[in-house]
């Protein structure tokens, strides 16, 4: 009867797979939504439509990558929407004053703006030990306010942005939108990093069990600080890309984005209390939400439905994760009991 300890039971091994296949589930959902929309509207599979499906969520994906790192460490970054807005305006303003500015400087400037915001977040959260929710909520307001002071009622208009930069937001290379390439690169790089390097694995350790992480010699403060830096930097880069995509920025650009991004991340299977989830999953989460959005439009269902669907999907996603966890727990308890009964 000792075998039951060594051998996984059927139910628990299935559930184990369900855990690992979390990302797979989202991919299937995306395919399903895509298929349904295609039935309703055959033009959904047109090149233009698919390009739109891919490039539309690019900026959100970029932000979701950073947010994922922060949430994995058991924190949250609510300031990213404001960071995006600030960065977009700063880059736009730089173009207004320096018309010939190279594109890479524009992207770098945006990233630096975000890095600075992330630096402040990270310092206060990691070293002053203030809960991230409060800090980044405060920073959401402060950055938005600074943005408003800078904008001061003006607006960046497309005519002041060089075409080469706008092309970044609309052109494709080999049929793939440049925005998608950038977001995809970020996802791939961070997926690789998060799987491959010790400091990155520390993020998971911190979120999974902070106390045990300290015992394992993980430098918790430094890692949390880093997570906020990266989140800020990516939001800053996202701001620059936002400018490229829309070519116009007011003082409200990106407001409310933070909760969309958190929603995408959670739908993507990242546990809101840290420790598990992947960058890839979060990216798929963002892709899924956007695909639903587009599919509703294509199916000529009023686009008013998409928010409600997204909200319901988020609830289903967390309820499902919880259900799987409970099932596993129960299976293990009963399993153990039956093994001690039988002896």
């Amino acid at each position: 009867m000792g075998a039951s300890i060594f051998k996984k039971t059927k139910s628990s091994s299935f559930l184990l797979k369900a855990f690992q296949l979390r990302e797979m589930g989202i991919v299937i959902a995306i395919v399903l939504v895509f298929g349904l929309a295609l039935i309703k509207n055959s033009s959904f599979a047109s090149t233009a439509s698919i390009q739109q499906l891919l490039s539309g969520p690019s900026v959100v994906i970029l932000l979701a990558v950073g947010e994922t790192l922060v949430i994995i460490t058991k924190n949250v970054d609510l300031s990213i929407g404001s960071v995006l807005g600030l960065s977009a305006y700063v880059v736009g303003d730089l173009f207004v004053h320096h018309q010939g500015m190279p594109i890479w400087i524009a992207l770098l400037a945006g990233t630096l703006v975000g890095l600075l915001c992330g630096l402040i977040n990270g310092l206060i959260v990691a070293y002053a030990r203030v809960p991230a929710l409060v800090v980044t909520l405060g920073m959401l307001y402060i950055i938005r306010g600074v943005d408003a002071l800078l904008v001061n009622g003006r607006q960046i208009v497309p005519s002041s942005i060089p075409n080469s930069f706008i092309n970044l937001g609309s052109n494709s290379i080999l049929g793939i939108p440049i925005l998608t390439l950038i977001a995809g690169a970020a996802v791939l790089i961070f997926t690789y990093i998060m799987r491959t390097f010790r400091p990155a694995r520390d993020f998971y350790a911190i979120g999974s069990n902070t106390e045990a992480a300290v015992l394992a010699g993980v430098r918790v403060q430094r890692r949390v600080f880093t997570a906020f830096l990266i989140s800020g930097a990516l939001a800053g880069l996202g701001g620059a890309l936002w400018l490229a995509e829309f070519a116009t920025v007011g003082s409200t650009a990106g407001s409310g984005y933070e909760l969309n991004v958190v929603a995408a991340v959670v739908v993507g299977g990242v546990a809101i209390f840290g420790g598990s989830g992947t960058v890839l999953g979060a990216a798929f989460g963002a892709l899924l939400l956007n695909t639903i959005d587009q599919a509703l439009v294509a199916s000529r269902v009023s686009s008013f439905w998409n928010q409600a669907v997204a909200g319901a999907l988020l609830l289903v996603a967390i309820a499902f994760d919880r259900y799987v966890a409970l099932k596993t727990e129960l299976a293990l308890r009963v399993d153990r009991f039956s093994s001690s009964e039988a002896k």
Partner: peptide, 12 residues
Amino acid sequence: AVTIGTLTLYRG
């Protein structure tokens, strides 16, 4: 997480 979900749902 729940209320971020219902935030989106109710607005939707």
